[in-house]
Design a protein around this nucleic acid. Structure first.
Length: 431
RNA sequence: UCCUCAGUAGCUCAAGGGUAGAGCAUCCGGCUGUUAACCGGAGGGUUGUAGGUUCGAAUCCUACCUGAGGAGCCA
């Protein structure tokens, strides 16, 4: 008899198959047992009638508690009453491991308890759906960049001292070399590989030792960072816009069921179409001040400011030309007014905040040396980076997109921590 | 680092100075279409820790610990 995954039931209607999985929940009714079984590909209700199965199978069903490992055989049939549209009429049931004290019950639980049991919480229908959306986002990102001529060149996770100021870096011992740090961005290295490959991206984990304790922060998160040689701010944002649209479309296309499980209102996602509006930093400040924000010109936006800006639009919005003073040392100044930098953020709708941040990188050797000094960064550590301006320097630009923030937005959920299998946060590193 | 809130059964919560309770989970029993199934029964507690006030503290006070949300900063 063929072993079939629940997600493939549609191709096996009428056939007797074997299903291997775990008992998600159970209801019984004297001579009938309703076993909700999950096997990783989906959830299905198995109906076992006492008269239709051997006594041992019936007893196994009665004994099996939540998350018992079970293998069952039965006939697949369509049934509108069943969630998922399919049901299986059980002919045999084997209890592979009997479980009686699974901690996560069908009732509500608090976040602390669920995070403590994250290794088990992952099995829930909601968490299963979120991580499948995440996978789709990752695939869509890779496909889009690969199909547009970008080469994946991953950048190092260990970085030498003082790459961008050390306050928000995690330090590690690196043999006789002394202190090394976990990367907080692959961008500087991307600039080197972009000069080798033209269009590149890196995609990996990023570490920030900020003591941020909000629903928008993790200490370890994943970021995709494209970098383009011979490109300006507008080129990078054009790519970001196309990337965001493709990711949204792909998830709408391939993860409809999961979004339904998450009760996501997809109407808002359907409206995400290029072109995104461009809003100058000055106009963004005027906008939020007119809505009562205390944020002054020259400051970065707060969380509520971002929400106010995003609420003015249906699609994501591009805020550009932040004051150079509040951006990183490597930002190219706006040639029309060097008070501003050629930088931009993309803010997601519905208050999900910044999902993309990027800009044009400084291409002048002298300019970069000056900025390093202004930021009191050690020039010696940046010799290789300065070399890029010495040997064939060209205009180049790129951006970083935070995967967890995008997944949070697409899933329409409250907290970033649910979008990664094992979130790392300020006060949590277990499990 | 700062601000706010919360720690009572395995979990979610109630009891706000006078005998510590419910739902879920667990165990036992009932029910042939259940949808967080339902019905009946049972077991389950050093009320986060330490000190204090009081005849009496889960409840009031102090300190600490742990967690959650937010601010700053960021993706």
């Amino acid at each position: 008899m063929e072993t079939v995954r629940i997600g493939e039931f549609g191709r096996h209607v009428g056939a007797e198959v074997r299903v291997q999985g775990w008992l998600h929940n159970k209801r019984s009714s004297g001579k009938l047992q309703f076993l909700i079984v999950r096997d990783g590909s989906g959830f299905a209700q198995a109906v076992m009638a006492k008269a239709a199965v051997p006594e041992a199978a019936w007893g196994a069903g009665e004994r099996a508690g939540q998350e018992s490992a079970i293998a069952l055989t039965g006939k697949v049939k369509e049934d509108k009453r069943a969630p998922g549209g399919f049901e299986i009429d059980v002919t045999g049931l084997e209890l592979c491991q009997e479980v009686h004290d699974y901690p996560i019950t069908p009732k509500e639980h608090g976040p602390a308890f669920l995070l403590e049991n994250r290794h088990l919480w992952l099995r829930s229908q909601r968490q299963h759906a979120i991580l499948r959306v995440r996978h789709a986002v990752v695939k869509a990102v890779r496909d889009y960049l690969d199909d547009n001529g970008y080469t994946l060149v991953d950048t190092p996770i260990f970085t030498p001292a003082a790459c961008e100021g050390t306050t928000t870096l995690f330090g590690v011992d690196y043999f006789d070399e002394g202190q090394a740090y976990l990367t907080q961005s692959g961008q500087l290295y991307n600039e080197a590989t972009a000069a080798a490959h033209g269009k590149v991206y890196c995609f990996g984990p990023t570490f920030r030792a900020e003591k941020s304790k909000t629903r928008r922060h993790l200490t370890e998160f994943w970021m995709v960072e494209p970098e383009i040689a011979w490109a300006h701010l507008e080129d990078a944002l054009k790519l970001a816009e196309g990337l965001v649209c493709h990711v949204v479309q792909y998830v709408l296309d391939k993860r409809r069921e999961e979004l339904k499980v998450l009760e996501r209102d997809t109407a808002r996602l359907e409206k995400v179409k290029a072109p995104f509006p461009w809003l100058h930093y000055d106009d963004a400040i005027k906008l939020i001040q007119s809505k009562g924000s205390q944020t002054a010109w020259g400051s970065d936006f707060g969380g509520t400011d971002e929400t106010v800006i995003a609420e003015a639009y249906e699609t994501p919005v591009i805020v550009h030309r932040f004051p150079a003073a509040i951006k990183a040392f490597y930002m190219e100044p706006d040639p029309e007014n060097p008070v501003y930098s050629l930088s931009a953020d993309i803010l997601a709708p519905e208050g999900y905040g910044e999902i993309v941040g990027g800009g044009e990188r400084m291409s002048s050797y002298d300019g970069l040396v000056q900025r390093l000094r202004e930021h009191e960064l050690p020039e010696s550590a940046f010799q290789w980076y300065l070399d890029l301006r010495k040997y064939g320097s060209v205009p180049h630009a790129g951006f970083g997109m935070g995967i967890e923030r995008v997944v949070t937005w697409l899933c329409g959920i409250e907290h970033l921590r649910e979008t990664i299998a094992f979130p790392r946060m300020l006060y949590r590193i277990y499990p």
